[in-house]
């Protein structure tokens, strides 16, 4: 009963956000198109780079597009659902954060639903379209296992990116002016996952790919789908690790959020 009441409350918050945005119809359409453009350019960039080279890090355009599709689908959906948490400093400044804390619901879902950027739907749809096109045209030898992976990997990527958004946003509980720095991991992570990680090198690759876990969003699942061995030598089952990595990331994010709120409460920034 308790849970159902809370769910109904969250649904109402979502409805309110939809109606609020409908109040600005023209802006909404403009934003819808603009946001689409951002993701289109990400893909165009990849195409342009393949205009001057046949291979990138040992991968062809068709293979790379699977990586791109997994990445932009996951990122765009996570950005739609959770991306606005990067506005946390603003919520604190305008008092929305306090207002949310005096209501009988969890703080994070309230903030996300009250500021859900529905205009980013266009990107998520485009991301999905790219993924579907890439999967269809990459000449994948479909087995039941690969079908299952194609179904599981994108949501795992969404959870992973969502966790990255939340974790990096909690930095602003401690350092209010850190805004742009979170971008280096969120948007940086999107760019990182848009290419096969063989493109990168040294400690930078190690840090982003395995230190933070970005290799499991698109690179390893793509290898498993394409049936390619990892040029860097990891076994093929690693492609299946993405849900597990996403789970770990979500745990870290939940922990970071709890600790962050506690810090906010003890400093009242």
């Amino acid at each position: 009963m308790e849970v159902r009441g809370a769910l109904r409350a969250y649904r109402s918050l979502l409805g309110a956000q939809a109606r609020s945005q409908a109040a600005y119809r023209t802006s909404f359409v403009v934003d819808l198109v603009g946001n689409l453009g951002a993701t289109v350019f990400d893909v165009v960039t990849v195409l342009v780079i393949f205009g001057v080279t046949r291979e990138l890090g040992g991968f062809t355009l068709r293979e790379t597009l699977v990586v791109v599709g997994l990445s932009s689908c996951a990122f765009a959906a996570a950005d739609l659902l959770v991306g606005n948490i990067e506005r946390l400093p603003r919520y604190v400044r305008t008092g929305l954060f306090d207002a949310v804390l005096v209501r009988p619901l969890a703080a994070l879902p309230q903030l996300l639903l009250m500021d859900l950027p529905l205009r980013k739907v266009s990107r998520a749809v485009f991301g999905l379209a790219v993924l579907l096109y890439a999967l269809a045209s990459a000449g994948i030898d479909w087995t039941p296992g690969r079908v299952a992976l194609a179904v599981v990997a994108p949501p795992a990527g969404v959870v992973f990116f969502a966790s990255v958004f939340v974790t990096t946003a909690t930095v602003s509980f401690y350092w209010v002016d850190s805004g742009e720095m979170a971008n280096s991991v969120t948007y940086g992570g999107r760019d990182f996952t848009s290419y096969p990680i063989t493109v990168y090198g040294g400690w930078f690759r190690a840090l982003f790919a395995y230190g933070m876990g970005f290799a499991f969003v698109s690179y390893h699942p793509a290898l498993a789908l394409l049936g390619r061995a990892d040029p860097l030598g990891l076994p093929s089952w690693v492609g299946w690790a993405s849900p597990g990595v996403a789970f770990v990331a979500a745990t870290v994010a939940a922990l970071a959020w709890r600790v962050g709120i506690r810090h906010y409460r003890s400093t009242g920034s």
């Binding site: 001057v52 890090g57 742009e180 720095m181 940086g188 760019d191 493109v199 990168y200």
Partner: peptide, 26 residues
């Protein structure tokens, strides 16, 4: 402080773009 945060971000994107463009040189 904002400048420091910005420098960190520019540096990360510097690494990303550099690696990607270099990969295109073949």
């Amino acid at each position: 402080q904002a400048a420091v945060a910005g420098v960190v971000t520019n540096t990360v994107f510097g690494f990303l773009r550099c690696y990607i463009f270099l990969a295109a040189t073949g």
